[in-house]
Lab assay of single mutants.
Amino acid sequence: RQGFVPAAYVKKLDSGTGKELVLALYDYQEKSPREVTMKKGDILTLLNSTNKDWWKVEVN
């Protein structure tokens, strides 16, 4: 499932696989259909980080 999360809630990881991955630093509950819920410690695939406030991710 793809959607947006606050950029301040995730940290980029060095995956070494060519995929950009991020680590969820905090729990986040989606507040609109365009967002996704994540739990602290989740590893997500980063799809787009051009917006400084909201990053598009895919929940694996």
Results as ranks from 00 to 15, higher is better:
residue 33 P to G: 09
residue 40 K to S: 07
residue 20 E to K: 13
residue 50 T to D: 15
residue 45 T to N: 09
residue 6 P to I: 03
residue 33 P to H: 11
residue 35 E to V: 05
residue 38 M to V: 10
residue 22 V to F: 07
residue 49 S to K: 10
residue 26 Y to I: 10
residue 32 S to F: 06
residue 58 E to Q: 12
residue 26 Y to P: 00
residue 48 N to C: 10
residue 21 L to Q: 12
residue 45 T to Y: 12
residue 59 V to K: 13
residue 60 N to H: 13
residue 15 S to V: 14
residue 1 R to L: 09
residue 56 K to W: 15
residue 25 L to N: 02
residue 23 L to W: 06
residue 32 S to Q: 08
residue 43 I to N: 03
residue 27 D to G: 06
residue 54 W to M: 06
residue 19 K to P: 11
residue 35 E to G: 11
residue 54 W to S: 03
residue 30 E to A: 15
residue 6 P to N: 03
residue 2 Q to H: 09
residue 55 W to E: 01
residue 36 V to A: 05
residue 6 P to Y: 04
residue 40 K to F: 05
residue 39 K to V: 08
residue 45 T to D: 05
residue 19 K to I: 13
residue 21 L to F: 12
residue 11 K to T: 13
residue 10 V to W: 01
residue 53 D to T: 14
residue 4 F to E: 03
residue 12 K to A: 07
residue 37 T to F: 04
residue 14 D to Q: 11
residue 34 R to T: 13
residue 10 V to K: 01
residue 50 T to G: 09
residue 59 V to I: 14
residue 9 Y to F: 13
residue 9 Y to Q: 05
residue 33 P to N: 10
residue 47 L to R: 03
residue 19 K to Y: 11
residue 25 L to A: 04
residue 54 W to P: 00
residue 50 T to C: 09
residue 29 Q to L: 13
residue 32 S to C: 08
residue 49 S to W: 09
residue 46 L to G: 00
residue 8 A to K: 15
residue 22 V to D: 01
residue 23 L to E: 14
residue 31 K to S: 09
residue 5 V to R: 00
residue 17 T to A: 14
residue 14 D to W: 12
residue 22 V to R: 01
residue 17 T to I: 14
residue 44 L to Q: 00
residue 28 Y to M: 01
residue 15 S to C: 14
residue 12 K to I: 10
residue 38 M to K: 00
residue 28 Y to C: 02
residue 38 M to A: 02
residue 18 G to P: 09
residue 32 S to G: 12
residue 6 P to A: 02
residue 27 D to W: 03
residue 24 A to N: 01
residue 15 S to E: 09
residue 39 K to R: 14
residue 44 L to I: 06
residue 16 G to Q: 13
residue 6 P to D: 01
residue 36 V to Y: 05
residue 16 G to E: 12
residue 59 V to P: 07
residue 60 N to W: 13
residue 35 E to Q: 10
residue 42 D to E: 11
residue 16 G to K: 09
residue 15 S to P: 09
residue 38 M to D: 00
residue 34 R to D: 12
residue 50 T to N: 12
residue 32 S to D: 10
residue 41 G to Y: 05
residue 46 L to E: 00
residue 2 Q to A: 11
residue 20 E to C: 13
residue 5 V to D: 01
residue 8 A to I: 11
residue 20 E to M: 12
residue 51 N to Y: 08
residue 2 Q to F: 07
residue 59 V to C: 09
residue 34 R to N: 14
residue 52 K to P: 15
residue 35 E to L: 05
residue 56 K to S: 07
residue 53 D to K: 14
residue 18 G to Y: 10
residue 27 D to P: 06
residue 25 L to V: 07
residue 56 K to E: 14
residue 29 Q to H: 14
residue 7 A to P: 04
residue 49 S to T: 10
residue 1 R to D: 05
residue 28 Y to V: 01
residue 37 T to P: 08
residue 41 G to C: 07
residue 1 R to N: 08
residue 40 K to A: 13
residue 23 L to G: 03
residue 20 E to D: 14
residue 3 G to M: 06
residue 7 A to L: 02
residue 56 K to P: 01
residue 10 V to D: 01
residue 29 Q to E: 15
residue 51 N to L: 09
residue 27 D to S: 08
residue 37 T to H: 05
